[in-house]
């Protein structure tokens, strides 16, 4: 897998935040209720790790067709 473009990174980050927010709802529905002070640091760290991971990927040499 290659590193997403800057736009791709932004989109990935947005989705990451969404997963963090909704993740708490879903976990709660499944019966795992974590205190705020535990959930958000952990989820936040995971998010940062994901983002750094994406940045560490090699840059693309993709031959994408230019957008219209």
């Amino acid at each position: 897998m290659n590193r997403p473009s800057p736009a791709g990174l932004l989109v990935a980050l947005a989705f990451g935040i969404v997963f963090v927010v909704e993740g708490r709802t879903v976990l709660g529905m499944l019966g795992f209720e974590l205190p705020l002070s535990v959930y958000f640091p952990v989820a936040g760290l995971l998010l940062v790790a994901m983002f750094v991971g994406l940045l560490l990927l090699p840059k693309t040499n993709s031959k994408q067709v230019a957008g219209t």
Partner: peptide, 23 residues
């Protein structure tokens, strides 16, 4: 796929995410 996307879900990456109109 017209833009060169492949794979079961991989094609998602070939969409023009840099265009606000599309995204």
């Amino acid at each position: 796929r017209q833009r060169g996307g492949t794979g079961r879900l991989g094609w998602l990456r070939s969409l023009p995410w840099n265009k606000p109109a599309f995204t």
